[in-house]
């Protein structure tokens, strides 16, 4: 029964909510109590915009339990526009299009399912950014 575990992190999984250090303005995801830059222990919530680019990537052919139904799937370290790296799956992307430097944007998708009758875990994934429409 993972409901409390899943529920507790909704702000992170739905909204990419991390923290910003009140002393040095450094932004971090996920949230932590002590700043990785200056060591101060005073944070305020910060929502990341969700844009970024692929910093490194791989493809998972042998998934861990809970992710079998999605395999094979691409995973990546995404460099968010505000600085931090995030580890996440990529989605809606052809294998050949995955590359370091690919522009991506955060979307909310099903991330895992512990059982057919359990809670569905929704969270962030990244997909190639859909460019703004032109008139």
């Amino acid at each position: 029964m993972n409901a409390p575990h899943t529920w507790r992190q909704q702000a992170q999984r739905y909204l990419l909510e991390g923290v910003q250090c009140t002393a040095c303005d450094h932004r971090m995801f996920p949230p932590r109590a002590v700043c990785t830059e200056c060591g101060a222990a005073s944070m305020r919530p910060h929502r990341f915009c969700g844009g970024g680019e692929v910093y490194s990537y791989s493809f998972v052919y042998h998934p861990p339990a809970g992710h079998e139904e999605f395999a094979p799937y691409p995973v990546a370290l995404v460099r968010l526009d505000e600085g931090p790296l995030v580890a996440a799956q990529l989605t809606d992307v052809a294998t050949d299009d995955v590359a370091i430097g690919l522009r991506v944007e955060m979307v909310t998708r099903r991330v895992r399912e512990d059982s057919a009758d359990g809670v569905i875990v929704y969270g962030y994934k990244f997909r190639p950014a859909i460019p703004p429409a032109r008139r």
């Binding site: 739905y14 139904e69 999605f70 799956q89 989605t91 809606d92 979307v107 909310t108 998708r109 099903r110 991330v111 569905i120 929704y122 994934k125």
Partner: peptide, 13 residues
Amino acid sequence: AGLDEDVVTMSIE
């Protein structure tokens, strides 16, 4: 819909 999509994820977008 893709494997990781449902009415929740599509409604969110």
